[in-house]
C-alpha cells in the first residue's frame, strides 16, 4: 500500500498539481467516480443487477483491504475472514432489528465484538509460528459457522436473518443511498489504510517485512505489530460483514464458509500485495468478472463452477509468474515503455 506519494511535503505553487500528487484527493476522486455508476443504470446504460455486483465488490473490498494489511505486511494468512464477516453481519442484524437500536450502535458492537475475539485468537496463535494463525482462524471460522447454524434465537438458523436498509440521520435509506453509503465507507477505509501504512506503525510493519530480526533489533515488538495487523484485518472483515447485511438485507450461514475466505485471499493476491487500488481491482476481478463477463461468453459461460476455476487458476498463475499481482503489472508498464526490463518480482510474497 505504498502508493508513493510525495504529498504534502512538496508544497509547490501549483495547487492543482499538488492536489493531483496528494493521495487523499485521489481517493476522493476515485470514490466520486464509483459513486456516479448508479447514474448509468438510471440512464439505462447499465443493467440494474450490475449495480448489485458492483455493490458486493465494494463490500468485499473492505475485507480484502484488511487481509492485505495482514498478508502484505506480516506475511500471515487468516482463513477466518468469512467467520468474522458473518459474526459482524449477525450482530448488526440482531442489534438493529431485535434490540431496535440505532445504526451506529449496531455498527459499533458489530465491529467491536469480532475485533476483541480476533485479538484473543491472535494472542494465542501469534506467539507460535506464523502458520498456526491460518489453522487457528480456520478453527474459529468453523466454530462460528456451526454456531450461526445452531443459535436459532439470534441468527435465525438455516432460515437466515433479514434486516432492512439502514436508517441514518433520520432518513430511511433505499438501495441507491445504501450504495452511496458503501462508496463513502470504502473511500474512508482506503484513506484510513493509506494513512496507517504511511504512519509510524506502518513503517514498523514495513521494517518487519524486510527482516523480522532487524526490526526486532530496532525495537519493534513483533508480537505487538502482528497483533495490530491481525486486529485491523478482523475489524475490517467485521465492518465488511455489517455493510453486507445492510446492502444485501440478508445473512445466511451458508454464505460465511471457507470458500468466501479463499475468495478474499484471491482478491488480495490477484490485486497485488500492499496496493490499495490493486486490492479494489482484485476484488472486482474475483467477484464481478466471472458473473458479468465470463458467464456471457458462449461455451465457457455454460460451465458449472466456472468462477472457482477462473479464480483458482488466476491465484496460481499470479503467484508463479507475477507475484506483485495486477498492481505490479500496472507499475511495470512505464518501465516497459522505456525499453527497460520490468522489475523482476522475485521478492514474491
Amino acid at each position: 500500500m505504498n502508493d508513493s506519494s510525495p504529498s504534502s511535503s512538496n508544497g509547490g505553487p501549483n495547487l492543482a498539481a499538488a492536489l493531483f500528487h496528494s493521495a487523499y484527493p485521489r481517493f476522493i476522486l476515485f470514490g466520486l467516480l464509483i459513486a456516479t455508476l448508479p447514474l448509468f443504470s438510471g440512464l439505462g446504460l447499465m443493467k440494474s443487477s450490475t449495480l448489485n455486483y458492483i455493490g458486493n465488490v465494494l463490500v468485499y473490498a473492505v475485507a480484502a483491504l484488511g487481509l492485505n494489511l495482514l498478508l502484505g505486511y506480516s506475511g500471515l494468512i487468516s482463513l477466518g475472514t468469512a467467520g468474522f464477516m458473518g459474526l459482524g453481519s449477525y450482530i448488526a442484524a440482531y442489534v438493529s432489528k431485535d434490540m431496535g437500536m440505532s445504526f451506529w450502535a449496531a455498527l459499533a458492537t458489530a465491529v467491536l465484538i469480532p475485533t476483541l475475539i480476533g485479538l484473543l485468537i491472535g494472542l494465542i496463535s501469534l506467539r507460535i509460528e506464523g502458520i498456526y494463525l491460518a489453522i487457528a482462524t480456520l478453527c474459529v471460522s468453523e466454530i462460528l459457522l456451526k454456531s450461526f447454524e445452531q443459535a436459532d434465537s439470534i441468527t435465525g438458523g438455516m432460515q437466515g436473518k433479514s434486516v432492512s436498509y439502514p436508517v441514518l440521520f433520520g432518513h430511511a435509506f433505499n438501495r441507491s443511498s445504501t450504495y452511496l453509503m458503501l462508496v463513502v465507507v470504502l473511500t474512508l477505509v482506503m484513506m484510513l489504510t493509506h494513512s496507517f501504512v504511511n504512519g509510524q506503525k506502518g513503517r514498523a510493519l514495513h521494517a518487519m517485512r524486510g527482516s523480522e530480526v532487524a526490526a526486532q533489533a530496532m525495537g519493534v515488538n513483533l508480537l505487538q505489530y502482528r497483533l495490530i495487523a491481525f486486529s485491523l484485518a478482523t475489524a475490517y472483515s467485521a465492518l465488511s460483514g455489517v455493510l453486507y447485511v445492510y446492502f444485501v438485507k440478508f445473512s445466511y450461514p451458508s454464505v460465511w464458509n471457507l470458500n468466501l475466505s479463499l475468495y478474499v485471499l484471491a482478491a488480495v493476491v490477484i490485486g497485488g500485495l500492499r496496493s490499495i487500488y490493486g486490492t479494489v481491482v482484485g476484488t472486482f476481478v474475483v467477484w464481478a468478472v466471472p458473473d458479468l463477463i465470463l458467464k456471457k461468453l458462449p461455451v465457457v459461460g455454460a460451465i458449472n463452477g466456472l468462477p472457482y476455476i477462473f479464480n483458482g487458476l488466476l491465484i496460481i498463475v499470479v503467484i508463479m509468474f507475477a507475484p506483485q499481482g495486477i498492481s505490479g503489472l500496472w507499475l511495470s508498464i512505464p518501465a516497459m515503455k522505456k525499453k527497460k526490463l520490468p522489475p523482476a518480482g522475485k521478492e514474491a510474497v
Partner: peptide, 28 residues
C-alpha cells in the same frame, strides 16, 4: 516444482488456489 523460487507462504496460497480449481472442476 516450478514454484521453487517462491516463498513457502506463497506455496500455501497455491494450495488454496488448488482448492478453488478442484471445487470448480468437480461440478464441471
Amino acid at each position: 516444482r516450478r514454484a521453487k523460487r517462491v516463498s513457502s507462504l506463497a506455496k500455501q496460497i497455491i494450495t488454496l488456489g488448488l482448492i478453488m480449481v478442484f471445487l470448480g472442476l468437480a461440478p464441471m
